[in-house]
Amino acid sequence: MANTPQSKKRARQNEKRFAINKSRRSRIRTFLRKVEEAIASGDKDAAVTALRNAQPELMRGVTKGVVHKNTASRKISRLSSRVKAIAQS
């Protein structure tokens, strides 16, 4: 348990930050799930729209420190290639 005033304050800040980051992570996963569902349904237009909506959300997670930049780039790259494959088939 925190004893000093500074460590008590840090504990409070960590709790707030954890809650904020958790909601951001959840929001990002929701956007990614929508892209996955659109890809699974085979609807090209819905997949493209969902991907366009997910990209800024992922990059916002990068700027907020929730997701690593390379992780976000990798996810966007892999999803966009899968969306492109739908368009070609």
Rank of each mutant, 00 (worst) to 15 (best):
I20V: 13
F18C: 00
N53L: 02
E57P: 01
S89C: 03
N3V: 13
K8R: 11
I86D: 06
S81L: 10
E57F: 00
V48E: 14
K16N: 09
S89N: 14
K16Y: 06
A11I: 00
K75P: 03
H68A: 15
D43G: 03
R60C: 02
S89M: 04
G65F: 09
A19E: 13
K34Q: 09
A11R: 09
L32Y: 02
S80H: 06
G42K: 03
V48I: 11
S81V: 11
Q55Y: 10
K22D: 07
D45H: 05
K8M: 12
E15V: 15
S23Q: 13
S73L: 03
R33D: 14
A47H: 04
L32H: 04
D45Y: 00
S80M: 03
S23W: 12
T4G: 00
F31D: 09
L51W: 03
R25T: 11
N21W: 00
E37Y: 00
I20D: 05
F31Y: 15
L79N: 03
K64P: 08
R33S: 13
V67W: 05
V48F: 12
P56E: 03
G42F: 04
R74K: 15
A2S: 11
R74C: 05
G61A: 00
K44C: 10
S23G: 01
N70S: 10
L58M: 06
K22V: 05
K44T: 13
T63V: 02
P5G: 07
A2K: 08
S7Q: 15
M59A: 02
E36D: 15
M59F: 10
I28C: 08
N21H: 11
A11N: 01
A46E: 10
V62S: 01
S26W: 04
T63M: 08
S26N: 02
I76W: 04
V48M: 10
I20Y: 01
R29D: 13
N14S: 12
R12H: 10
N14A: 15
T63K: 11
P5W: 13
R25W: 08
V67E: 05
R60I: 10
R60E: 13
N70I: 07
E37L: 10
M59R: 14
M59L: 15
K8A: 11
A72M: 00
T71I: 12
M1Q: 12
N21D: 13
V62Q: 02
S81I: 05
V67H: 01
V62A: 04
V67K: 04
T49K: 09
Q13I: 11
K16C: 02
S77V: 07
S41W: 02
R74P: 11
I86F: 07
K34I: 09
V83H: 00
V48G: 01
G61V: 01
V62F: 05
K69G: 00
R24G: 08
S23M: 09
K64E: 13
R27G: 07
L79W: 02
T30V: 14
V35T: 08
L79A: 06
D45N: 12
